[in-house]
Amino acid sequence: MGKQKKTRKYATMKRMLSLRDQRLKEKDRLKLKKKEKKDPSALKEREIPQHPSCLFFQYNTQLGPPYHILVDTNFINFSIKAKLDLVQSMMDCLYAKCIPCITDCVMAEIEKLGQKYRVALRVAKDPIFERLPCTHKGTYADDGLVQRVTHHKCYIVATVDRDLKRRIRKIPGVPIMYISNHRYNIERMPDDYGAPRF
């Protein structure tokens, strides 16, 4: 004799007694709470997000040459694949002096990738790159970049990662540099700074 197959029931919940059920004792039963009337003359408290003083009509006044550009791991990798010189291509994109910055967590991420990304590691260790210490919790590099950009609005973020771009777009006043058609482009850069429009 074979075993009878039982179909598993999905989304079934255990039946529970309502706290207002008649079978419960008085002490276990839920007492109906009366709604408290709010005083109309009392001050209403609202939480309004504080925007930094450097933003003027969503434009960042702290941005200006020489530009400090936070570089992500995949941005270095894709630059090497597209055969682009990082600093020269950044200067061609922004028409100004650029200082590429790399955080400790991004550096650690490149080192973890191993032998396959040794060229990217050599590029990242170049003295042209400004090293920034990390203060955030955890080892995830994207969190570190997002935290640094929210606190200090003087950076442009260079990344190809879609998720990181989506997170940075929610932060007002932070431009994003990316690679398309074998050259660097920039989005969300104010027109006053002379950034090219492609």
Rank of each mutant, 00 (worst) to 15 (best):
D161H: 00
V157R: 05
A141Y: 04
D126I: 08
A141E: 11
I176N: 07
R162K: 15
Y155R: 04
I179T: 03
R166V: 13
Y178D: 04
I156L: 15
Y178S: 14
I128R: 05
P133E: 09
R131Q: 10
R166H: 13
E187D: 04
R131I: 08
D163P: 05
P175L: 10
D142N: 15
R148N: 00
R131S: 06
F129G: 15
S180V: 07
I171T: 07
K170P: 00
V174G: 03
T159H: 00
H182L: 13
E187R: 05
D163R: 11
P127F: 03
T150G: 00
L164W: 00
H182E: 14
C154D: 10
H152D: 13
R169A: 12
V146P: 00
K165N: 14
P172G: 12
T159K: 03
A158K: 09
D161T: 01
G173M: 10
K165V: 03
I128M: 08
L145R: 02
M177Y: 01
P127A: 06
R167L: 14
I179C: 01
Y140R: 15
C134R: 01
H182C: 08
N185Q: 02
L145G: 02
L164H: 01
K137R: 15
K153S: 14
H151D: 12
R166P: 06
V146I: 09
M189E: 01
E130Q: 09
Y155H: 14
D143S: 05
P133R: 07
F129Q: 08
P133L: 06
R148L: 10
I176W: 02
R183C: 08
L145C: 02
I168W: 01
H136I: 12
G138H: 08
P133N: 13
V174P: 00
M189T: 03
P175C: 03
Y178M: 03
E187I: 11
M177Q: 03
D161C: 09
V174N: 07
P127Y: 06
L132Y: 12
P172F: 05
T150H: 01
Y155A: 15
R131L: 08
H136G: 05
P172K: 11
L132Q: 07
Y140E: 14
N181P: 06
K170Y: 05
N185G: 05
H182N: 12
R188Y: 14
G138K: 12
Y184W: 04
K165I: 11
H151T: 05
P127D: 00
H151I: 13
R162W: 05
I171S: 09
P172M: 07
T135G: 10
I176T: 01
D163M: 09
G144Y: 04
I179F: 06
K137W: 11
D163Q: 07
P172V: 10
H182G: 02
I179G: 11
F129R: 12
T150P: 03
R131M: 12
T159W: 03
H182M: 14
R167W: 06
P172H: 06
P175H: 02
Y155P: 08
K153Q: 13
H151C: 10
G144P: 12
F129H: 15
G173F: 11
M189S: 00
G144S: 06
D126K: 10
R167T: 07
R166A: 14
T135A: 05
T139E: 10
S180R: 02
K137C: 03
T159V: 02
Q147D: 15
K153R: 15
I156Y: 00
F129S: 06
V174R: 04
L132H: 05
R162E: 04
P133Y: 03
G173N: 14
Y178C: 02
N181I: 08
